[in-house]
Structure formats: structure tokens, C-alpha cells
Amino acid sequence: MAKHIAIVEDEASIAENYRDAFMQHGYEVSIYPDRPSAMQAFDQMLPDLALIDIGLGEEVEGGFDLCRDLRNRSKTLPIVFLSARESEFDKVSGLRLGADDYLTKDISLPHVMARIVALFRRIEALTQPEAQEEIIERGKLALNKARMTVAWDNQPLDITVTEFWIIRDLARYPGQVKTRQQLMDAANVILDDNTITSHIKRIRKKFQSIDSDFDGIKTAYGMGYRWHA
């Protein structure tokens, strides 16, 4: 059965472009131009994935409210923000509300597709038995590629898809310096250097919340980052 993706986007052209792309990949797509209509539809049935814009018509932060509602209904529903807003504050807010990823609108369609696919794969993997999974272990770090989960010292880390791809790219070859461009490519995202920097920061914090002595990601000044075993 085809996966159902809900696009909540007030800009019709974008919504339709995304719908066309998703439908070409065999997904079923519904478009809701504002929060009330989306909520009404979600009351009937939850989609398999929600792509939400933050500013919805008159509601400047309608996407956040919607995200909160959806998260209350389902702990596992993948929610992705797609917004023109690129401020750090909005990103942090969105991810805190339980979104699985935060994408800015300059991302290309293939990248969006990669993310959607990855998210569905993670959902699927979570329902599969663990034996089949490919696990990368680097000291205390354990990476589950299929489920897209990361654990440090056997404690799971709550991370987004982008963050997972960055960690995986770094940890795959410890000691090797990964440039920001390489990390961007790995994360299927076109961002500027600052965004990678803030992603790295956020990842470090997440590790440090488990282990305050975490020192796994080293900065190679002027070049990029490397995994420090």
C-alpha cells in the first residue's frame, strides 16, 4: 500500500511541485493550505509522514502548533518542517517540538526525496527484528544504519536524520578529516558552512548530555571535522 504524505503548505505552487515529485515516486499525497483544514483531515486519519511549513497563511507559527498536535497524537509519525525561515531559533524550536527534520526551502527535490525515503526506512526498521541490522561500533558509539539510531555507552541518542548522516559519515573513518562539503553531501543537504557548524555543535551537545567528557568530534580548523576514537 502506498505511503500517504501530507503536505501542509500555503504556497500552492510549491505544494503542487512537491506533490508531483512525491507521486512520481509512488507516494500518495494530500495538500492542505492551512492548519484548520489539515487538522480536520488528520482527525479522520493520520498520514504516514507530514511535511509542514511554519508560516501557514495568517498563522505565522501555525506549523509549530500543528507539529505539537500531531506529536501528541502519534509518537512515531515522522514530521518534517519545510520552511523559508532559516534562523537558528526556528530550527531549534521546530526540532524541540518533536520534528524529525528541519529543511529550508532552498533544498533540492532529490534531497527532500532522500530524506523522505530515509525516514520511511527508519520507521520500517524500527518494526523489524534487530538481528538483521547493520551496526557500526566505534568504541562507545553504536550506529544502527537501518533504524537510524545512535547510542553512546549503550544509551540511545535522540537525533534527526541529518544528524544521523553526519555522525555516520564522521564515524565511518575515524581520524579522517571530513570537510563541511563532504558532510553536507552525506546529509543530502545544501547548506552553508555555518549550518554544518551548528549541526556539529548540536550533535556534540547531545553526546555531552549523556557523557560530559565526550570528545569524539574534533575540529580541524579551516578544514572540517574528524572522529576521534
Binding site: 504556497e11 505552487s13 510549491i14 511541485n17 512537491y18 508531483d20 515529485a21 512520481q24 523559508a84 532559516e86 529550508t104 526551502k105 532552498d106 533540492s108 527535490l109 532529490p110
Partner: peptide, 13 residues
């Protein structure tokens, strides 16, 4: 950014 996203997504399609 929004109109650019329209252009990008249209070209991608």
C-alpha cells in the same frame, strides 16, 4: 526564498 523554492522544485520536476 519561497519563489526560488518554486523555481527549484519546478525545475527538479
Amino acid at each position: 526564498r519561497t519563489p526560488l523554492a518554486i523555481i527549484h522544485s519546478s525545475l527538479d520536476n
